[in-house]
Every structure is written in structure tokens, then in C-alpha cells.
Design a protein around this nucleic acid. Sequence first.
RNA 1: GGAGGGGUGGCAGAGUGGCUGAAUGCGCCGGUCUUGAAAACCGGAGCGUCCGCAAGGGCGCCGUGAGUUCAAAUCUCACCCCCUCCGCCA
Length: 399
Amino acid sequence: MLDIKFIRENPDLIKQAARKKRVDFDVSELLKTDEERKNLLAKIEELRAKQNKVSEKIAQIKNDSEKQILIESSRELKNELSARENEFKKLDEKWQILMLAVPNIPDPEVPEGESDAQNKEIRKWGETPRFDFSVKDHISLMRDLNLLDLERGVKVSGFRGYFLKGEGALLSLALWRLAFEILGKKGFTAVLAPALAREKNFIGTGWLPQGKEEIYKTQDELYLAGTAEVPMMGYHGDEILKEEDLPVKYAVFSPCFRREAGSYGKDTKGIYRLHEFMKVEQIVLCRADHLESVKWHEAITENSEELIQMLGLPYRVVVNCGGDLGQGQVKKYDIEVWVPSEEKYRESHSSSYFHDFQTRRLNIKYRAADGKIRFVHSLNNTAVATPRILISLFENYQQ
RNA sequence: GGAGGGGUGGCAGAGUGGCUGAAUGCGCCGGUCUUGAAAACCGGAGCGUCCGCAAGGGCGCCGUGAGUUCAAAUCUCACCCCCUCCGCCA
């Protein structure tokens, strides 16, 4: 969500943002609705002011017949008011829907492009390994060592189901622990978060309403989060933080659930794309300052690079193009690790910042040093996601 | 699953239809006193939004939403959450 005042003053920026993000959004419709809404609200408030004055008089007057006359006139006001209020309710609903669809403004450094194919590499680390034998993929490597059971995974869990066993299971635990270790040293608080969360957390983070197809819904009006970003951002919802407590930094572990609705044919083999996986996520809430956001964006990206470097995996960092950005994201880096069986770098981490797009929806503020209350800025990045990272780990180190 | 109690400002806690945006206490901010502090005393202070250069003013906000009423923190209904007891349970 953006500030309506900002939208009123900068409709062209919104227009450009929608174009760059390849989002279909009509600012002029929002502005028209906003204008109507504002005018109607002014009218309603005027009527209420009158109503309040009359009410006050009624309370004071003793004379019964005079009182009756006032009550009669108040009744008329009431009728007019409720008609206007009904009108307003419809208009406001439309306004809300449009407001939730407004894309955040991408950073000028975000490259033009339709999809991840146009993401731009900004740096590379490590040598891609050369093998003097024919390379196996992670599926056969892990299956041969009895660390992964996809067949029984599907039997039990359905399409994209899996079991990790033995050292495959233990290695996963070790990776989460390593992520907590590295981030703990940098002042991140370790958190185990629920994956089951209320709808408002999904709207707040921008996963809903647009991503409806991607999310599992339970029969109790709760949803399964696709990332710990959802519960962890909701954690401070409706709070006013102290400036001296910023930045707030969390390393959050949670299971992650994704329907993968738009990718039925994609990555159907192995453990790259799953309905259920585990992840340690970095979450940062910082002061409402662009440079502060940029600083932390670089920092959380480097944290993940540090982890990948410790694992000795060749990787590259790309800056995502406009068409590959989420609605709320200002800028995003993906880290892609080398997958020998595909001879490609593939996404393992995703690092983005949002300015106050999420915190405005979630109502997360802080009292700044000047006494003003502002929305904090939010950022997040993967620390490590399993089992996906295992693909590179097994394939790059095969002998 | 059953029975009961409750959600009010940073916190505690009054308030059962108009004089209540809300008593009181604690905490917070400013001042007096003091070498300095504490105590005491005096004063101040909610959030959002709209109009306005400003001073100021309008509207909304007592868990959420709907309703009754000329008028709702206060009455009615639904929902959410918390607490106590019983049952079940990793």
C-alpha cells in the first residue's frame, strides 16, 4: 500500500511503475474514485457535524414541544446521513480494492524486462567445477545414498512429495543451524514462527489478494504461509516501536507451503520446486529512510553470500528486472547457485526491500527522534532454504 | 467438547444512554524547590483523517463488524481474542 497523498501527487510515477512491473493498473480510475470518495466524505462529515449540534441541543432543552421539533429535524438528518453513508460504503470498498492493487515504485536501478530471463547478473563468486566423469543429478546421487525418497514421498504426500532420510535429514538440520549461527553473530534474533496465519498477515505482506492461487487455505479461515516473512511481519502488526530498538533483525525458521499453481509443468523432477519446504529467513525492520533500506538490503544479501561461500558453492547475484518484481518490492536481488546437472545457476535466495509498502498495510510504526510517528521500512531475504540448497551441495561435491 | 468471567489511553483501573475523548493512580514531558538528585508541589500530554499559511476548527476512534435510538464506551446481535473450572490431549 502506498500513501494516497503520494499517489495523488505522483500519478505518473505510479503509471511508470505499473508499466515497468508489467502490471495492469489504471491510476486514473483510482484518482477518480478517490476524488468522489473524498467529496462524499466531506459531505457526510458536514451532516454529522450538524447532527451532533442538534443532539447537543436536545440534551439541554427542557421544554417538551421544542424538544420534539428538534428530534424531528434530527430524524431527517439521520435519514439523509444513512443514505449518504450507504453510498460511501460502496465507494470505499471500490477504493480499498484499487488501493490494494497499486504497485510500489521500483528503484531506478531496476532493469527493464518481462521475466527472470532479463534479470541482470551483477557479480559472480567461485569456480564452477569440472568433472572428468559423467555428472549425476541430485536425484540419483541422493537416492543412491538412501538420503531421499521421492516415490514414497509421492505415495504419502502426492505430487512433489518427498522424504529426506539419514544424513539427508541431518544435513538439513545442520544447514538451518549454520544459518542461525551466522546471523546470530550479526545480532539477528532466532525465531521459530508459525506457518498457519490469518488472512490479514497475507494482505499485509502483499501475498494477498493477488497471490490467491499460490496459497493453501484451511477450513478455519487460516492460511499456510509460503514464507516466514508472513508471520514475522505480522508479529509487530499494529505496534509502535521505539526508534532506539531499530533495526529489528530476525532469523526466522518455518515450514513453507506453496501451491505452485502457475507452474504445473515446471521443475517436476527432484527437490527444486516443492509444495512444502523449510527455510530460515532474514527479516529486517529499519528506520524510514531510503538509504537505510539500501544499506540493509546489501547487508542481508551479503549475509546469505557468506553462508553460500562457507558451503563453497559457486553462485551469482542478479538484480531482478521490473517484470520479475513483486507488487510491493522496490528492488530485488536473487542469488543463484550453480547446478552442474543443468549447467545453470538456479535461484536459491531472494532478497528484497519494500520501503513502507508492507508496514503501511500492517500498521507497524515507530516514534522517531523528532517525536513524529512513521511507518518502519521492511526487508527480507532467504538465509537458507532446504531442501533446495541440497541440490547444489550434492551435485557440486560429487566424486 | 462443556460451564462461567472479561476485552476502555504506555500500564493499572472507573465509567450502564446525552453534562464522557473518557475519573483516578502509576508512568511520561516541562517547571518550582535543591549544589545535584529523590520527595513534594504546579502545569502539560492520545491516535487517525479532513479544511486552514497559521491560530484554530470539523469528523472518526473505548476488541471487530452490524443494528436499535434524535443521541451509544454504555442497549441488541454476530465474530475475534484473553482468563478460570471440567473433559480430552503431544
